[in-house]
């Protein structure tokens, strides 16, 4: 299976991305034009602390990082290459707050690739795909070793 083969490769790659590691983002799955990562709940990514010692809600910025990362991985998957790309733009609609304590899943699929741009769509959920907490639209540009 692709996922079994790719898991150690992707995990190795992710372990070298400090900000992905700092937030606790993990590999979940990979296909021919899609990727999935997870963001387990942890206290240091909370944006809205809970009251009376209850668990807080994950910051939307941390979910943005999850979706930017998974968008990039889906582009790697679709290109079947670790070649460079840069996020051109990324939009998130925050449909609802993530449930405190739950792992957030980020899924992204490449809808279309041109010579230099990949168009992606994705969503984040916290257990049920049918009940997403955020929707993503993004555009990634292939860099070919360009400087910035």
């Amino acid at each position: 299976m692709l996922n079994k083969m790719m898991k150690p490769v992707v995990e190795h790659f992710m372990s070298h991305v400090p900000h992905v590691r700092a937030l606790g983002i993990e590999f979940s799955g990979l296909g021919r034009d899609w990727a999935e990562l997870t963001l387990p709940w942890s206290p240091h990514i909370v944006g809205y602390p809970g009251e009376n010692g209850e668990k807080g809600v994950i910051a939307s910025g941390a979910i943005f990082t999850l979706m930017d990362s998974v968008g990039g991985f889906s582009v790697h998957a679709a290109r079947r290459s670790a070649a460079g790309h840069a996020t051109l733009d990324l939009r998130l609609d925050y449909l609802r707050p993530a449930r405190p304590g739950e792992t957030v899943f980020g899924y992204s699929k490449v809808q279309r690739m041109t010579k230099s741009v990949a168009f992606v769509r994705g969503y984040a959920h916290d257990g049920e795909r049918e009940d997403p907490l955020a929707l993503m639209t993004g555009c990634f540009m292939f860099t070919k070793g360009a400087k910035s």
Partner: peptide, 9 residues
């Protein structure tokens, strides 16, 4: 810098 960190900021 991670684009997500810049967005979060």
């Amino acid at each position: 810098l991670h684009g997500g960190a810049v967005a979060g900021l």
